[in-house]
């Protein structure tokens, strides 16, 4: 059954006529064209689809779009403010934390949620925070390094 969903994504209000049984991942990618959020496993076990809802990390493949209406949804496309990249985006690029880049949007967003809660974490805490976000290219080393480099700046 189609339904009009009211979604606030990256600070903008959207009305989307779509199926009620669609996941947030599907609505973001298919109805809003926000393909920065990736589908890696579709079963909540890779983290590639991570978005922030009210600042908290959510697996958008296991979130019903209808259930997060009127919440503030942040995807990777909304992270840079007025064209200014978020420090994490810069750090990931500069430190070589991005290879194929498929895990990157989810990885950066979960790191953001985590750093917002823990501004100066230990290396172990960073690893734990991103452990649900799988990466096959980097061996995580430079990802952890990039996240820690941002904490130093803060």
């Amino acid at each position: 059954m189609k339904h009009i969903l009211k979604l606030n994504v990256n600070g903008e209000d959207h009305e989307v006529l779509t199926d009620i049984h669609k996941t947030l991942l599907e609505v973001l990618r298919e109805d809003l064209g926000l393909t920065g959020t990736k589908k890696g496993c579709d079963l909540g076990t890779c983290g590639a689809c991570t978005v922030l809802i009210e600042g908290k990390p959510y697996l958008s493949c296991l979130t019903l779009a209808v259930a997060v209406q009127e919440k503030r949804i942040l995807t990777i496309e909304g992270l840079a403010k007025d064209g200014d990249l978020h420090p994490l985006q810069k750090a990931f690029a500069e430190k070589g934390a991005i290879q194929c880049g498929f895990c990157t949007p989810g990885m950066i967003l979960i790191a953001k949620a985590f750093l917002d809660e823990h501004p100066s974490p230990s290396e172990g805490e960073v690893k734990k925070a991103v452990a649900g976000n799988l990466c096959r290219c980097t061996g995580y080393a430079k990802i952890v390094e990039a996240i820690l480099s941002v904490t130093e700046k803060i």
Partner: peptide, 9 residues
Amino acid sequence: VGAYAHQSM
């Protein structure tokens, strides 16, 4: 439980 995102959901 699971990982960070599972815990926040």
